[in-house]
Write a protein that binds this DNA or RNA. Structure first.
Lengths: 144, 144
DNA sequence: TGTGAATAGTTAACAAAGTTAATTAATTTT
DNA sequence: AAAATTAATTAACTTTGTTAACTATTCACA
């Protein structure tokens, strides 16, 4: 492996280790990371069915089903049967759910805030641009 | 939230979504992602103790203990008690373990290769430097 | 030098969150 | 109308993390 690529690989590995460790720690009074992500997604993208969520988050229907059940019990989501297909339910975020999203200091918030504080603004902007480029590359191939 | 920080937050969120979806898919004939990461880490960085691994991967000692037990059974690692401290064991990668690492195209490999190919070398180096800085920031606070 | 505190690792019991297989009810296809 | 497909659920299981309690060893120091 070429030197620049090796250096990148090592750093990326380090970063990934951190992220993995980090990502599974989002827990707001018993609302886990995936729970939260579902609520946030529905908040930002409007009502969707369970099937949609499974596709979006790349997890199985039963996994979504359990998450949704939990979120309904917590009154963070509400569901209503669709008229066109009575098997399907549109899930939408309740007021309480919206408050959760608005009030939550996620790890993502805390991490990005920490980084924003410690990098000079110019560098932060540059890093953001480059990270965006990387995300674009990753998405490109994700489409296949 | 300030504009530069908001832009960073959004991009980071995007990136994190991608990572979460990808990260847990590494499984080579029953050797899970964390198993593999441990073997690779020891291969690239030389023998380390369980304690070191727990620190490196940000997971608890018992979790490491179980992973190591599995990897010893699979003969991917070998251990030897250290002379200086008879509580501690140095873990090192066996030939079989090295073969696993050399023969595996991990997610991380494929991702970093894709990025390396599509970014001009100079940009890749720059991105690596900045990502390293970010990792350092994250590590700093991890120490508290 | 002996003792109490700290440390490396393990075991046990548990929790969270994913999986597949099977079931139900509704819809679509033939 | 019957057969196949689909959205959602339930049940049983797996993986992989956690904390608490334990053993064996080492360290600090009165």
């Amino acid at each position: 492996m070429e030197a620049a690529q090796k250096a990148f690989f090592d750093t990326y590995t380090d970063f990934q280790c951190f992220m993995i460790a980090q990502v599974n720690k989002g827990d707001f009074n018993g609302v886990g990371a995936t729970h939260y992500n579902i609520v946030e997604y529905l908040y930002r993208n409007g009502p969707n069915t369970g099937k949609d969520l499974a596709r979006k988050f790349h997890i199985s229907a039963p996994a979504i089903s359990r998450h949704v059940k939990f979120l309904l019990e917590k009154k963070l989501l509400a569901q209503k049967q669709t008229a066109e297909d009575r098997r399907a339910f549109l899930l939408e975020v309740t007021e309480k759910g919206k408050q959760l999203v608005n009030g939550s200091e996620t790890q993502r918030h805390s991490v990005t805030t920490r980084i924003s504080r410690q990098l000079p603004k110019k560098e932060l902007e540059q890093f953001t641009r480059m990270l965006q480029k990387v995300v674009d590359i990753l998405k490109q191939e994700g489409e296949n």
